[in-house]
């Protein structure tokens, strides 16, 4: 996933000294083709590779051998933090730092504190779910080499792709491309690193 890693593999490039490969990008036409190919790529021992789809595909996680995410634990942590924060804040402010009696309630009224404890638990859990997801996914991300390929813009519409990163230790331009082509791709291309990667999001020439 890390472009700079590709530099170690300069020698494997087709034109040493001229261009550096970022990886191989292969297009597929149906979810079934993609899942089949994903099994092949995984079995070939690749580690730094990915599938790209317009929507999550049932069974693809298993085909790719994706491990279960730790997001649940992050959310649990966020929730516990919010819960304790709510409890502590209400106890400290109303019962300790600025005590005053109102409507005949005890200074520290646990039943009356439950709503805010609950809301803060939810708030912190939800924020950790969202930001945890972004951080684990490495998003927001300014650019990814796959965006350099024009066909890749259809990944958010109706096409399925597999990308193998040049930084993968098994990566070999010809072999990797051949593997994807034999796995049912309708077109597997090598994507080369560029001199100036200044464009945001997709690579689009239209202005």
């Amino acid at each position: 996933m890390d472009e700079s890693g590709a530099k170690e593999h300069v020698d494997r490039g087709e034109f040493p000294g001229h261009r550096t490969a970022s990886g191989v990008l292969a297009e597929f036409e149906t979810p079934a083709d993609l899942v089949r190919a994903a099994v092949r790529v995984r079995e070939a021992g690749y580690r730094r590779w990915d599938a790209h789809t317009p929507f999550p595909i049932h069974g693809l996680d298993r085909a790719m051998g994706i491990k279960d995410t730790a997001l649940g634990w992050i959310v649990l942590g966020g929730g516990i933090f919010g819960c304790l924060l709510g409890l502590w804040m209400q106890w400290w402010t109303n019962a300790v730092d600025y005590p005053f009696i109102i409507s005949g309630k005890p200074l520290w009224s646990l039943p009356a504190n439950i709503p805010i404890i609950f809301e803060l638990t939810i708030l912190f859990s939800a924020l950790s779910a969202f930001f945890g997801m972004l951080i684990l996914n490495g998003l927001p991300k300014h650019h990814h080499w796959a965006f350099s390929e024009d066909r890749f813009s259809r990944v958010t519409s109706d096409r399925y792709f597999i990308s193998i990163e040049a930084s993968d230790s098994n990566f070999d331009i010809e072999e990797s491309r051949a593997l994807l082509e034999s796995a049912g791709s309708v077109g597997a291309k090598v994507v080369w690193e560029r001199e100036h990667e200044d464009k945001l999001g997709s690579d689009n020439d239209g202005d």
Binding site: H52, T53, D61, M64, M133
Partner: peptide, 17 residues
């Protein structure tokens, strides 16, 4: 769109989130 590229590894965490 924060650089979303439809990655299945991303989808996996996205769906869990």
């Amino acid at each position: 769109a924060v650089g979303w590229r439809g990655s299945q590894r991303h989808w996996h965490r996205y769906e869990r989130a």
